[in-house]
Amino acid sequence: MQRVNMIMAESPGLITICLLGYLLSAECTVFLDHENANKILNRPKRYNSGKLEEFVQGNLERECMEEKCSFEEAREVFENTERTTEFWKQYVDGDQCESNPCLNGGSCKDDINSYECWCPFGFEGKNCELDVTCNIKNGRCEQFCKNSADNKVVCSCTEGYRLAENQKSCEPAVPFPCGRVSVSQTSKLTRAETVFPDVDYVNSTEAETILDNITQSTQSFNDFTRVVGGEDAKPGQFPWQVVLNGKVDAFCGGSIVNEKWIVTAAHCVETGVKITVVAGEHNIEETEHTEQKRNVIRIIPHHNYNAAINKYNHDIALLELDEPLVLNSYVTPICIADKEYTNIFLKFGSGYVSGWGRVFHKGRSALVLQYLRVPLVDRATCLRSTKFTIYNNMFCAGFHEGGRDSCQGDSGGPHVTEVEGTSFLTGIISWGEECAMKGKYGIYTKVSRYVNWIKEKTKLT
């Protein structure tokens, strides 16, 4: 034993070699072989497995989906700052455009905790909710729209109204504003409101030439003092309507412009014939205590009207009353817009006519005020429907199939267009061939041609 100890002390290297040989010859039971080890760690190889990531292109799944990435790591994937920024906006807080917040056709661009709407022409605001041009839906104005110097929408209202708090709607500024039905039992019968379409306001006024200088022999019209197929109006439903009495009662109609003036057809009036105007009328054979009678003290036909040349060209006249009318729910003026808007309103496509005229061709006159909704007829169809001249200051309205029309005794009465609950004068009943005849239409004086003249002559002093 002493000898062994001496050998170990003198030859430590020998001992180490012996131990190493023993270990190498022993069977290893701690580690699995290569094949079995792979069965336990069965993990798919990654895209760049075996390579240094710093030297390969980034992978979106590896960089940002398996674990949260930084902007720089995302930049490695896209290799483009702009594309990385677009991805980053949604990656950080989701897609803010998912709810489609942009209105009126706006395009949404996502941002971090926010979004941006790219608005089409005519709109602005956070969600493109603000109209900035009158060309689109009248700028959301209830009545009139004008573009300011910086191309912003400025709404306005006709006389007797003021802008509401929203700067879009119009509200009454006087007790009985024009064009409004205020009798409670008839307010439910107000005709369907007309909503502004998209309009090209630059070209809204037709490029028409008034044929002022045409000389033409007097034409022989049949029954051209021209509501057939209409309905009984309720008291106060058309408070701007008046009836004219002269040699015979209810020979023509008219509309209240203001307390002192009536507008009617020029062919209705004769110099030297006494005319009485009755406002607030409903049943011409009954006294309903809503009527107001006034005498006409002055007749002003349009300066281009000449019955000797043509009885229905420039067929418009103004009547001055001896005493002002007292405005109330049964006696209310009709609204008159400017030339541009009167023309736009007419193009809405349908209007209402009213009167006490004959209820059928050569038949009896109506006792109760009649009204009828009539569609506008395109000019080409209008011209083809008659052998008589249709001037540019006239328009056609009615039904091709016949059966409904204005008729004798309705002449001078109103053709009105309702705009968001307020009625505007767009025409004056003038003439036609018979009444409600198939293929024939009622012919009306186009008020847009005469609004400046009306307003100039009827100013209240």
Score class of each variant (00 low, 15 high):
Q2S: 07
Q2Y: 11
R3I: 10
R3Q: 09
V4F: 14
M6D: 08
I7W: 13
M8N: 13
A9G: 14
E10R: 04
E10M: 13
E10N: 15
S11H: 13
S11G: 14
G13Q: 11
L14F: 13
I17S: 02
C18G: 05
L23M: 11
L24C: 10
E27H: 08
C28D: 03
H34S: 07
E35Y: 09
N36A: 10
N38D: 12
K39N: 09
K39D: 13
K51W: 04
L52P: 15
L52C: 06
E53G: 09
F55Q: 15
V56W: 03
E61R: 08
R62C: 04
M65S: 05
E66I: 04
E67T: 09
E67Q: 04
K68N: 15
K68C: 04
E73I: 07
R75Y: 08
E76F: 09
V77Y: 10
T84N: 11
Y91I: 11
C97I: 01
C97R: 00
E98V: 10
N100Q: 10
L103T: 09
K109P: 00
D110Q: 12
I112L: 15
N113Q: 12
S114A: 11
S114W: 04
E116N: 03
C117R: 00
C119L: 00
F121W: 08
G122T: 03
F123H: 06
E124R: 03
G125I: 01
L130R: 15
L130Y: 12
R140Y: 05
C141Q: 00
C141I: 01
Q143L: 02
Q143W: 00
F144P: 00
F144M: 04
F144K: 02
K146L: 11
D150Y: 08
N151P: 07
N151T: 10
K152A: 13
S156P: 01
S156L: 07
E159H: 06
E159Q: 07
R162T: 11
R162G: 05
Q167A: 08
S169W: 06
S169E: 11
E171C: 04
E171W: 07
P175D: 05
S184N: 14
Q185T: 15
T186W: 08
T186R: 12
A192V: 14
T194L: 06
V195F: 07
D198H: 12
D200K: 12
Y201E: 11
V202G: 11
N203Y: 09
N203S: 09
D212C: 07
I214C: 11
I214W: 07
S217V: 14
Q219R: 06
S220F: 07
T225V: 13
R226S: 06
R226W: 06
E231W: 12
E231K: 09
A233Y: 07
P235K: 10
F238N: 03
V242A: 05
V243E: 03
V243L: 09
L244G: 01
L244M: 07
L244E: 01
F251Y: 11
I256P: 01
N258E: 02
K260Y: 07
I262S: 00
V263C: 03
H267Y: 02
V269I: 13
V278M: 07
A279L: 02
G280P: 02
I284T: 11
E285I: 09
H289G: 13
T290W: 10
K293R: 13
R294D: 01
V296R: 01
I299K: 07
P301E: 06
Y305W: 11
N306W: 03
K311I: 07
N313L: 08
H314P: 02
H314S: 04
D315M: 01
I316M: 03
L319D: 00
L321C: 02
L321N: 00
D322T: 03
L325W: 04
V326C: 07
V326A: 10
N328I: 01
S329P: 14
P333S: 05
C335S: 01
K339S: 15
Y341R: 08
T342A: 06
N343K: 05
F345K: 01
L346S: 03
L346K: 03
G351I: 01
Y352M: 04
S354K: 07
G355Y: 14
G357C: 11
R358Y: 06
H361I: 12
L367C: 08
Y371C: 06
R373W: 04
V374N: 02
R379G: 05
T381I: 12
T381W: 06
C382F: 03
C382N: 02
R384Q: 15
C396M: 02
G398K: 06
E401P: 13
Q408G: 13
G409V: 07
G409K: 13
G412H: 04
P414R: 01
H415K: 01
V419I: 14
E420D: 14
T426F: 01
I428P: 00
S430G: 11
E434F: 12
C435N: 04
A436T: 15
G442C: 14
Y444Q: 00
Y444K: 01
T445M: 12
V447Q: 00
S448E: 07
Y450H: 03
N452S: 15
W453Y: 02
T458G: 03
L460S: 07
T461R: 08
